[in-house]
Every structure is written in structure tokens, then in C-alpha cells.
Write a protein that binds this DNA or RNA. Structure first.
Length: 262
DNA sequence: TTCCAGGTGCATA
DNA sequence: TATGCACATGGA
């Protein structure tokens, strides 16, 4: 597991150029982070019966889920609530600059910083976190940092318990709802049941599969968990990027009351 | 100036 | 249990 590492990965024709501090990252670490061993071709082949996912797979060849550091993943998604992606990147950059340790990345024009530890953010406190454009999320992030720093939330254990139990533990964290919790369980722990439903995915599912109905997120999640088993999380990621590629605005459809898939 | 963003918490019915 | 609204901030 890559923890506290700082990487610069550049895509070059036919290969990836990885720059890291010294010899701090092994090949095995990289393969784990990039999930290069995951049989993506086999999964995509199973999507041939679905015209929407097939088109998404063509649009994003080689798109894989990363296996991210659990704390960085949790903290980043706590910051994501009602923020644009470009703003989330800016928040993460500011947090790293202000509270993260510097990292010596080769050929970097400007100094890089690691994502700050739970201890660092817990010590920073809510007021200083607000200086990173966090707004009301600062309180949530400070609380989460304290929970992890004080050992009341063991993030590393979430990968070793069942999905429902891991979900329950994460939902105890202030500022963490079903969407953020599922992001952590999918992107950091690789729980195959995890399926985050955000505004983009909800819009994509409605546009492609339920154009005349409006389903609640739970119903959408049940639909795709069943339809795209055993790896619905991968379908989520392809639909997310496919919808964003279209450039559609991520607002849910207006008409019709909620319906259930059952 | 207005709207809205990789949601969540809380009050109310 | 379902629904509506507030929450900070900044870019379009």
C-alpha cells in the first residue's frame, strides 16, 4: 500500500513515466496503486451486451480504478461536497501546501507536498483548515482527522470487514454520507459492492436507462449493483467519465415522482 | 447578479 | 420515512 508517498506520473507514448522520491516506491507498490493486475479486458468483454457501457469503454480505453490511500481518499471526498472538481483539486493542493510535508520530486518546477496526515490536520484545527477554501467542510474534516488520529476510526481495518460493517463505521464520521462512504470503500479498499451515486452518475443512469422515470439513489444503486455485477464500481467510473465527456450539466431529471426498480 | 457544484445534517411533516 | 433547506466558496 502506498502511504504518504508522493508521485508524479506522466503519460508518454506506450508507457508511463513515474517520478518519485529516491527509491521510496517499489514496482509492486505502483502496480497495487494503479491496479495494473486487474483483468480489465475480461471485464469490458462482459459489457458487450450493454451498448452504453461498451461506448464508454471505447471512449476511455484502459481506465482503471486506483487503489488510493484510505485517509487521503476520505479527506478528499469530505472536501468534495457541492464543490466542482477543479475546486476540490485546489483544496487538496492548499491542504498539502499548508499542512503536508515537502517532497523532493525530480524535475518538478515547484515544490511538491505530501497529503497531510490525520495528526497534522487534527492539530491544525477547524479555523486554520478554513483558510484552504473549505468553508463549512472544515469542521467535518477536522472531526474526521481527530477520529483517525485518536484511533476511534481505524481506516486500515475497513478493508478487512464486510461491506455493510465498513459502511456503518464510515457513516459515523461527521460529513460522511452514503456517497462519500462508498467512494472510500471503492477507491481505497476495493470493496466490490461499493457504488457511489453522485450527480453525474445519477444523471447518466437516468439518461441512459431510465429516461422517463426518476429513481432515488438507493434504487439506482440497487439497479446497477445487480446489472453490472460483479464489478459495479467499474461501471460507475466509466459512466461518470462518459457523462462528463458529454458535457451535460449534472442536475437530476425534473419530471415524474420517484419510482422503485422493484 | 445569479446559479450551481463528485453531499450531508437537521428540522419538519 | 420522506422532503426541503442551509451550509461556504468561487467560477461561469
Amino acid at each position: 500500500m502506498l502511504r504518504s508517498a508522493c508521485l508524479r506520473i506522466e503519460r508518454r507514448p506506450g508507457f508511463l513515466l513515474v517520478l518519485a522520491e529516491g527509491d521510496s516506491v517499489s514496482r509492486a507498490d505502483l502496480e497495487q496503486f494503479l491496479q495494473t493486475q486487474f483483468p480489465l479486458d475480461q471485464l469490458v468483454a462482459q459489457w458487450l451486451h450493454d451498448p452504453h457501457l461498451s461506448r464508454a469503454a471505447v471512449a476511455f480505453p484502459g481506465l482503471r480504478l486506483l487503489r488510493q490511500d484510505p485517509w487521503e481518499c476520505l479527506a478528499s471526498f469530505i472536501c468534495s461536497s457541492t464543490k466542482r472538481i477543479v475546486q476540490i483539486k485546489e483544496i487538496v493542493r492548499l491542504l498539502s501546501e499548508h499542512f503536508g510535508k515537502p517532497a523532493a520530486i525530480p524535475n518538478a518546477a515547484t515544490p511538491w507536498h505530501r497529503f497531510p496526515s490525520p495528526d497534522a490536520l487534527a492539530a491544525a484545527g477547524e479555523a486554520r483548515l478554513r483558510s484552504c477554501k473549505l468553508g463549512y467542510r472544515a469542521g467535518y474534516l477536522a472531526s474526521a482527522a481527530r477520529m483517525v488520529a485518536e484511533g476511534r476510526l481505524d481506516l486500515s481495518a475497513l478493508g478487512h470487514v464486510e461491506y455493510q460493517e465498513a459502511l456503518r463505521r464510515l457513516l459515523d464520521v461527521p460529513g460522511v454520507g452514503p456517497k462519500v462512504a462508498n467512494c472510500v470503500l471503492l477507491f481505497a479498499h476495493g470493496h466490490p459492492e461499493a457504488f457511489p451515486v453522485d450527480v453525474w452518475v445519477a444523471k447518466s443512469l437516468h439518461r441512459l436507462y431510465f429516461p422517463r422515470r426518476r429513481l432515488k439513489r438507493d434504487a439506482l444503486s440497487r439497479f446497477i449493483t445487480k446489472r453490472f455485477a460483479p464489478h459495479p464500481g467499474y461501471a460507475q467510473q466509466y459512466l461518470f467519465h462518459y457523462e462528463r465527456l458529454r458535457g451535460g450539466k449534472p442536475s437530476p431529471p425534473k419530471p415524474a415522482p420517484y419510482e422503485s426498480t422493484h
